[in-house]
Design a binder for these strands. Structure first.
Lengths: 212, 212, 212, 212
DNA sequence: TATGAATGAGAATTCATTCAT
DNA sequence: GATGAATGAATTCTCATTCAT
């Protein structure tokens, strides 16, 4: 039953946000009653946190499943961008959940010991690709894995999250083909152009974590 | 009084989202009573829509205030990226409002005749910069203004909107200097690298609206 | 404008009752604003009373317009029953208004000097028919005009007012022909059978008004 | 507690109608709080419907309790008219509730599966009396049970429902004895005169439901 | 391990009416 | 004679949560 409740809660919170999410809709969709939700998860906040943790686990898993090809770093990077993009495209509920959590200023993630323990597998995979590409003289050297990851994520995430207001502004439906495919091509080019333009090594540590 | 209500509503919806926003908190902050809010705006939905329209007006105004320097397209593009970034940085409530509206799948924007009429001044300014840069052989030719705009927005918006979950992942505070400044530099480089890498002209029309 | 307001108020109160009637719907239907309604009629209660008075005036007028044929009392009585029935059928809003007033225990009629002054023209016309019929030996003698009037009204009014619950009970639509026509025939027969059955003169004064 | 709420709701709706009925008055009279009313009945509409259903159940029960005396059809009919009349007289809240429902065009009855299933026991009892009376040559043959029932109901119901406006018109209090008793005598006579006046059999099926 | 019954505290919205010119 | 602006007091209904077994 916990699984059913979590699945229903994921749908509900993803669709309506945290404040907009209704406990009774979750219990109804899970074919149970409100009471059970409190029995298993304590309260709405903790239920949301559990949903978030589950979503993160899946995302981490998806990142781990991604296999990097160090023999062809450019193609590897293409595939990484595409992998990331398709993950968002196929899991809009994850994207919306992350939006919701950010609207709440990370209130739930901050209290989740489990999520704090996580590290992003993709960072290591990007680092490996960068090293391979730099060794072959294909990628610039003054680049950090985190910056690359954030760039890839930004291009994909923003398109997904802001599609409604952007569609209204531009007067087109951004989710209608061939636009999403074009955007992946565009994003891939942006990332590769960025990586393939060697310049003088920049000082400093970029966005990387403090040694603390 | 309508102004006071709108200002209070902007703060409330921006902070708590639409569902989480409370009518009575708005009226209290506006030094009036709930009733007036219904007198002027009809209901919570229409109030939100009006807040959104006002926010858009301001954003459009900020875009119009941005002066493009066609003599130095590279510097112009740098300034455009910075302008956009600083607008988000200085108006986090606008960013959150747009997020909220997207979480609601553009429900309010869709019913706003006023917003539908808007066009983004920045698109024309980017187009002008592109033309100037292309004429001087500085920018590639197979690029569309909308793609550039979305790229600039994506880099800035994503960093702002996802800062809480990203900060938790990365174990650092993304809003603590020098990280925001570094990100602007990074974004500027990404955009310029993209623009300065001429390739074969791509077929198709990118993300632009259909001629219909 | 008073006429427009009254017409709109008649429709509104007739449709929704007094409590269900909305001041703003009346003003909107009258193409004016709430304020005007208070300007002309003081408050909702007085507006209702005025509507009621107007409806009574029309009913009295209709009764006065009915011409009795003393030469053929049976036919005259037939026509009187039919006249009454058709008046209800053609003025359902009057019927509903009277219902509403009775649900309110005659609260408004009691404060209407104008209505208290009214007498029902139909009573005199019935009395004339009775006299003519009795003189010809067609009608019984132990009958009072008021009882006849109430009987005629009861048969017509009840059918109209209770048509929804009756239709649900009986599983048919009572307002669908030939049922209304049948009911008129039935009512006519009931009244004539009653009048045409001479018995011993009954003592007492029936339902007539006390000499006070 | 559901019983207490229903009893209070019956009083409230009967007294003030549906729109005029106040949820908080009901809960106060039932010695509980508004919330419970929604817990048990969902909303005001459903509460009203339940009250109506209960009232119908009681009316059906009262009709079933009425025992018909086939040995003396005329006396049986007298008793039936009196039974019906006294039921209205003793249950004015039922009468008012039915009025209210009709003012709302049967909105609640239409959604009540329970009420739709009901049949009126009195129709069968009238049919039995008619057969007995016809067999003894006391009642005419061209008469239908439904017409008799509606006639009996009309005479009683109308007097009760319209007593306020009628009292104002006639300048007397219709509920003051001996008037109510006189009206029962009058109604009984009207019905019996109607039944005892054989004529040629009329064609058609009267108000009865279509065979569909 | 599970659950039906109950509920306090809000939440958005409505409604008739009056103020002020 | 006419009206735009303003409003106090409800009014229905919702929401997350706890009680009691």
């Amino acid at each position: 039953m916990q699984g059913r409740i979590l699945a229903a809660a994921m749908r509900e919170f993803s669709e309506h946000g945290f404040s907009g999410g209704r406990v009774d809709r979750i219990s109804r969709q899970a074919h149970t009653v409100d009471r059970m939700l409190y029995y298993y998860f304590g309260n709405k906040d903790r239920l949301f946190r559990t949903v978030l943790e589950q979503a993160y686990d899946r995302m981490i898993q998806a990142q781990q499943d991604f296999q990097v090809d160090a023999e062809d770093p450019v193609e590897g990077m293409r595939r990484l961008v595409a992998h990331s993009w398709h993950h968002y495209l196929e899991h809009p509920e994850l994207v919306r959940l992350v939006m919701t959590e950010n609207l709440h200023r990370g209130r739930h993630i901050r209290t989740s010991a489990r999520i704090r323990r996580l590290s992003l597998p993709l960072i290591d995979k990007i680092a490996a690709l960068l090293r391979a590409g730099q060794a072959r003289g294909l990628f610039r050297r003054d680049v950090e894995p985190v910056e690359v990851l954030l760039t890839v994520m930004a291009l994909g995430f923003f398109y997904m999250t802001n599609r409604y207001t952007l569609s209204a502004w531009l007067g087109v439906d951004l989710m209608e083909e061939p636009r999403p495919t074009r955007w992946l091509e565009h994003g891939t080019r942006v990332v590769l152009d960025y990586l393939g333009h060697p310049r003088a090594v920049r000082a400093g540590r970029g966005l990387a974590a403090a040694p603390a």
